[in-house]
Amino acid sequence: MGAQASKLGGLVDSTWEAIGGGPADLSFPDEWLGVWDVTSTLVSVELPEGEAVVPNIAAVRRAEQQDLAKPMQYQVAFMRNDSGKVVYDRRFNTAALLATYYGSNVDFAGRIQWDAKDPNSLILNMPGDMSVRTRVMRRSESQIGTDRLETSEFLQQVLDSGDPARPRVKASQCFTKYKWREEAAAEAAGGPAIVATQVVSDYLTPFDSEVDAIRYANRPVTTYTYRMAFSRHHDAPQVASAVSLS
């Protein structure tokens, strides 16, 4: 499955791919277009190199105590970009996920700078003085058969609290395996149309420790595994898939 998001007449696309960034954006089946209700469950938290090298062990403990084995519900949207490919609506998805933690009183969509023509960059201005700048460094995707898709994105986040001497930098990989079936078949069976397993791996950067970043290069220090189920949002158009889940 190709992915050729239209950005500045395709010039940025070709440059991105030429330097090894992978496809210009992840692309998905046409029948995924629209809004989906997602149930996501954190099923495991692992520290492959031990907790001593984890930069923010408090965040890991919070995930273990508050999120592990507890289903979370939010929405995910897929949109069509200028070249006609179905891609993530990253503004909608980021805002929807944040709303599950902070509630709907904050207009997160209005705090997000993102353009489908340049999907690799997203800036989020959090309440207070914190800004989060996310940059996708490289990505890949592979369709396996007619009903399975694997995607991967390696991204860097800079968390800026206004103190230039203390930026936080995170490096993560998000690897997702999708499987899907016709929506009509899913509704008849009373189950989801799309299921996925997602593994989010965090890596050390020189901002954590230059020595450890070299020592554990390309080795995750934290991994979070999620099981996800997607069902068409009732207020969104119903579009049947042409592929069966087996």
Rank of each mutant, 00 (worst) to 15 (best):
M228H: 00
A189G: 10
C174S: 15
G9D: 14
E187Y: 03
R62S: 02
W32V: 03
A95R: 08
P167M: 10
V76F: 00
E182C: 01
Q238A: 13
E64S: 06
G2T: 15
F230N: 02
L149W: 06
R62P: 00
A213C: 09
T39D: 00
A116M: 11
V43W: 03
D147N: 15
A185W: 05
R138D: 05
R148H: 13
M72S: 12
S83G: 09
G162Q: 04
D129Y: 07
N105V: 15
L155D: 11
S172C: 11
R90K: 11
A24G: 13
D147F: 07
T205R: 13
E46D: 15
Q157T: 12
K7T: 10
R166H: 15
Y88V: 04
S152Q: 08
K177F: 13
Q66S: 01
A193D: 04
Y74I: 03
P71D: 00
R111L: 13
D129W: 07
V76W: 00
P192Y: 10
E17L: 10
N120Y: 06
R139T: 01
P164C: 11
Q65A: 06
A229S: 08
N105D: 15
S121N: 07
Y226W: 14
P237A: 12
F154L: 14
A240W: 04
A24N: 07
L98C: 05
T39Y: 00
L26K: 00
G50F: 11
F230Y: 08
V243P: 02
P23C: 06
F230L: 03
R181A: 02
R62A: 01
M79R: 02
Y74P: 03
T225P: 04
S244Y: 03
P55M: 13
N218Y: 14
Q156C: 01
V158R: 14
D37I: 01
L159R: 14
F78Q: 00
E51H: 08
T151Q: 01
V60H: 08
Q113D: 12
D115W: 12
E153K: 10
V195H: 11
Q75L: 05
T134A: 01
V45S: 08
P167F: 12
L98A: 07
K70P: 02
S246E: 12
E49G: 05
R91D: 00
R91F: 03
E51G: 10
L47T: 13
A188S: 13
L124V: 12
